[in-house]
Design a protein around this nucleic acid. Structure first.
Lengths: 243, 243
DNA sequence: AAGGTAAGAGTCATGGCGACAAGAACGCGC
DNA sequence: GCGCGTTCTTGTCGCCATGACTCTTACCTT
C-alpha cells in the first residue's frame, strides 16, 4: 500500500465491503445455483445471490463461510473459493460497495432449500441465468458468469468434480458432473479407464449402487482418492463437445 | 447483497479499499518482480509492491491501471489481471483495509527502473521473495506468492507467454519464459514443433536474430499468432521438471 | 423366460509427445 | 580460410494416452 506524500491516512475514501457467495450444486444432472429473493430496496423482490457485509474482525474467507452458513445452514461446504472482486462505481446505487465473490460447491442443497420458504430461496439452473431468462439484482449476472467460468477451469486443473457428488459415487454420477459443467459428451468406457487405471483418482468400495428404474447393471461405488489436488484425471477435450 | 432486517444501511463497517499491483517481467532469463521502498509508517523503509487507494469514481481495473501508470509510466501493459482480494483483520495496523491484487506483465521495465531512484524501486527475482530472502511489508509475501501461482496457471491455459517477450521473438526466448515460470526444462526441438506446426501460435517473420556472444546459428524471429487466447500450445509436463 | 438397459471389460488405431540424432548457420581462434 | 564449438533447426523413432467401437455382465420389467 503506497500512500502518496501529503495524503492524510484518515481521509481515505470509505467503502462498504461485502461478500457474495455463488452456491453451486448438481440437481437432475444440471448445474444449479442458489438464489435468494431480496426483501429491501434496491432491487426489492428480485433474485440475487446471497451475501452480506464483511465484519472488521473476520477474514474474507470467514465472512464467506458465515454467509453460507446463515443462508443454508451448511458449515462445511465441499469447496469455498474466492474468485473475484467487484467494485464498479454505481454497482450499488446507495453507496460505494466493493464485493468479493466466493464460489461454494455443495453436495445436497435440495433438502435445505425445501426447508426454506420457497418464495425466499430457490435452486435455479445456471443455464437460465446465463441465457438471461432470469434477471438478477446488482451486477450479480456478471458475478455468476465469472463463478461458472471459474468452476470450469477449476475442474480442468484440479479435480473438484468430487465436490459435487457424495462421499461415495458411481462413475456415471461423476461423469455427469463433467458433462454438465463442460457441456460435453464423454465416452463412459474411456472415462472409466482414465480414472480407475493406475491413478489413485478413485478407490473402489466393494459395494454397488442399485440400478435406476430403467434397469441395467448395478454400478460400483467409489470414493475419492488422494490424487485429485493438482493433476487432472481427464483432459478437457477440444473436439468431442456438443452443446 | 443481503441486508439483515433491522440493519441500518448507513451503519455498515467502513473499509479502505486499495489496489496492489504485482508487476512481473523477465530479466536475464529469470522472473522478476518490481518492488518499491516504503516512505511512510507502517513498515517504513521496507520493500513492498506498489499500490494505492481505489477512488469511488473508478473501477478496480482502472485503479490498477492508474497505479501501474503512476509507478512505472507504462500505460499499456501486456497483461493486467485481478487475481485475489485480501482482507485479514490487522493486515494494516492503522485501519481496516481490503486490498485487491492485480497481476501485471511487462516486456521491458529495465529502462523504467533505471530511470527511477534505485533506492525507491528495484527489480527483484521472485525466487528471492519466495525463499523469503527479502522481507516484504504487510502481507505482500502472500500476495506475491498468489500472483506467481496465478501466472503459472495462466500460462498453462492461456498463452500469456508472449506477454513477457517483445513483439518479435525467437523460440529460445519464448521457451525461456516457460522454463523460468514453470521451473522445468523443455526440449527445444519438441517445443518448436508444438508451436510452429499447424497451430497459428506463432507466425514467422522472414527475419532472423543475430546470434549471441557465444555464437551459434542465428534464430528465426516470430511474432505472436491469434491462437493464443484459449487453447494451449504446450502442455505443462508433470514429469520432465527439474527444480 | 425373454427382452431391454446400463455398467464394466476388452480391442484397435491414431496421434501427440518425449527422446534422441543429424544437419545447418553462425562466431572465433589459429 | 579452415576447423571447432555453439546454437538453432530439421528429422526419426517409439511409446503411451485416448477416441471409437464391440462385447460381456448383471440387473430390471413384463
Amino acid at each position: 500500500m503506497h500512500i502518496p506524500p501529503g495524503y492524510d491516512p484518515s481521509e481515505f475514501p470509505a467503502f462498504a465491503v461485502t461478500v457474495d457467495v455463488v452456491i453451486l450444486t448438481m440437481a437432475d444432472g444440471v448445474l444449479h445455483v442458489l438464489l435468494v429473493r431480496r426483501g429491501q430496496e434496491p432491487f426489492a423482490g428480485m433474485w440475487a445471490i446471497p451475501g452480506g457485509f464483511k465484519r472488521p474482525d473476520e477474514t474474507l474467507d470467514e465472512a464467506a463461510r458465515r454467509e453460507l452458513s446463515e443462508e443454508t445452514g451448511v458449515d462445511v461446504p465441499s469447496l469455498l473459493t474466492q474468485f473475484g472482486a467487484y467494485g464498479d462505481p454505481g454497482r450499488d446505487p446507495r453507496m460505494n460497495v466493493v464485493t468479493v465473490g466466493y464460489l461454494a460447491v455443495l453436495r445436497e442443497v435440495g433438502a435445505i432449500v425445501a426447508g426454506t420458504d420457497a418464495a425466499h430461496a430457490a435452486l435455479v439452473p445456471v443455464s437460465d441465468i446465463l441465457a438471461e431468462r432470469i434477471e438478477l439484482a446488482f451486477d450479480h449476472l456478471r458475478i455468476v458468469r465469472d463463478a461458472v467460468e471459474r468452476v470450469r477451469v477449476e475442474l480442468e486443473l484440479s479435480g473438484i468434480a468430487t465436490a459435487f457428488v457424495g462421499t461415495t459415487f458411481t462413475m456415471a454420477e461423476l461423469r455427469a458432473v463433467y458433462e454438465a459443467i463442460w457441456g460435453v459428451q464423454l465416452d463412459a468406457a474411456n472415462f472409466r479407464r482414465s480414472l480407475v487405471g493406475e491413478g489413485g483418482w478413485v478407490i473402489p468400495t466393494g459395494r454397488t449402487a442399485p440400478p435406476g428404474s430403467s434397469g441395467g447393471r448395478p454400478a460400483e461405488l467409489y470414493r475419492a482418492g488422494r490424487a485429485w489436488k493438482h493433476g487432472v484425471p481427464i483432459q478437457r477435450t477440444r473436439r468431442e463437445g456438443v452443446s
